[in-house]
Design a protein around this nucleic acid. Structure first.
Length: 336
DNA sequence: GAACCAGTTACCCGGGTGAG
DNA sequence: CTCACCCGGGTAACTGGTTC
């Protein structure tokens, strides 16, 4: 059902029908009512492609995500995305998830060229982020889920105080008497990982400790690599008594590796996982975690920021820093 | 002649089609 | 092979007709 068919049906012009449906003032009440009734009766849905053609812009918010089989099980990501999508729907916009297995930057370029996407939400920001630079250069609005210190000018972002979260976790471990504390985390190119590692080192220093290179493994951002990294740590001649994992995906792998090695969490190995293991975890031990409260709320805030950005709000006013909290579990305890 | 309401026309863009 | 033109659904600027 097209605008044209409604116009023919009612004996009105295309324009009048369009105006009536889009709330323009120059349409008589009775005419508007008739158009709305006909549209409902005929199940009219505007064609997004045609609208985009006329307006020169799309009606979707894009989320480019390198989807791997592991990510599909990432409940945290899906919860944020679901809430984001729900809020956008209220504003009659779609969330378009663009998956890419290869060149992420090329995926952004394709998506921009396709014109369907009006703004992007950019997850997992990097210290030097070519994606954000590209979007700024092309003048495409975006909200970064995470900050990026390498960007010259102001931009909209939502982030957590990663450094503080890592400090909370590390302080808890040093407070429990741990001295050989390992850091198992994502590659340093990710800004969240860089900040969490900074917080870790700062808190070690505050306790009079220095980071020990063999105890620093920074290449784990999925279950498999988390598993392998934990195996590597436990095989050291002097294994750590405590481990801070800086992301929940590696955390799942790390916990499984520790359990498979026969470690009793909280007794002979203390473990804190940033973001926890997620609500769908099958692990029975409650894992001590740095939590970023309310992933659903975060999704909504991301949507609000994006919509505000599209309405022209200056990026500098669209920057939100949330505080993480430490949620104690049973996976850590006093050093032996 | 202003206010109100509705119609006409150009245009958006990339791809397909037919004519030269 | 090249090029002009058309197509799709919709929007926006402009125009026109009533009515008070």
């Amino acid at each position: 059902m097209s605008l044209k068919k409604i116009a023919t049906e009612l004996g009105l012009s295309l324009t009048t029908v369009s105006r009536a449906l889009n709330g323009y003032p120059e349409v008589a009440q009775a005419t508007r009512a008739a158009v709305l009734a006909a549209a409902a009766r005929l199940h009219y849905q505007p064609d997004p492609g045609a609208r985009g053609l006329a307006l020169g812009r799309g009606d979707a918010v894009g989320l480019v995500f390198p989807i791997t089989p592991g990510d599909l099980g990432d409940v945290l990501f899906l919860t944020v995305a679901a809430a984001l999508s729900e809020r956008l729907e209220e504003a009659a916009m779609d969330l378009l998830i663009v998956s890419t297995a290869g060149d992420e930057l090329a995926a952004y370029q394709r998506a921009i060229r396709g014109r369907r996407i009006r703004a992007f939400v950019v997850p997992r920001t990097r210290v030097h982020d070519a994606r954000l630079a590209l979007l700024q250069q092309q003048g495409v609005p975006f909200v970064a889920y995470g900050r990026s210190p390498g960007l010259a000018t102001d931009y909209a972002w939502l982030d957590f105080d990663n450094e503080r979260g890592a400090r909370l976790a590390t302080r808890r471990l040093t407070g429990l008497g741990h001295r050989r504390i390992a850091y198992l985390g994502a590659p340093a190119e990710y800004n969240f990982a860089a900040l969490r590692f900074d917080g870790f080192c700062a808190e070690l220093a505050a306790a009079g400790l220095a980071p020990s290179p063999p105890l620093l493994l920074r290449q784990a951002l999925d279950r498999r690599s988390g598993y392998a990294a934990m195996q590597q740590l436990l095989a050291l001649p002097q294994p750590p008594t405590a481990v801070l994992v800086d992301n929940h995906l590696a955390g799942v792998g790390a916990v499984h590796a520790a359990l498979h090695q026969g470690r009793s969490l909280g007794r002979d190995l203390s473990l804190i996982v940033y973001d926890g293991l997620g609500t769908d975890s099958v692990i029975r031990t409650a894992i001590t975690a740095v939590q970023q409260p309310g992933p659903a709320q975060i999704g909504r805030v991301l949507a609000e920021l994006t919509l505000a950005r599209l309405e022209g709000a200056p990026p500098a006013t669209l920057q939100r820093l949330h505080q993480p909290v430490l949620v104690p579990g049973d996976s850590d305890g006093p050093a032996a």
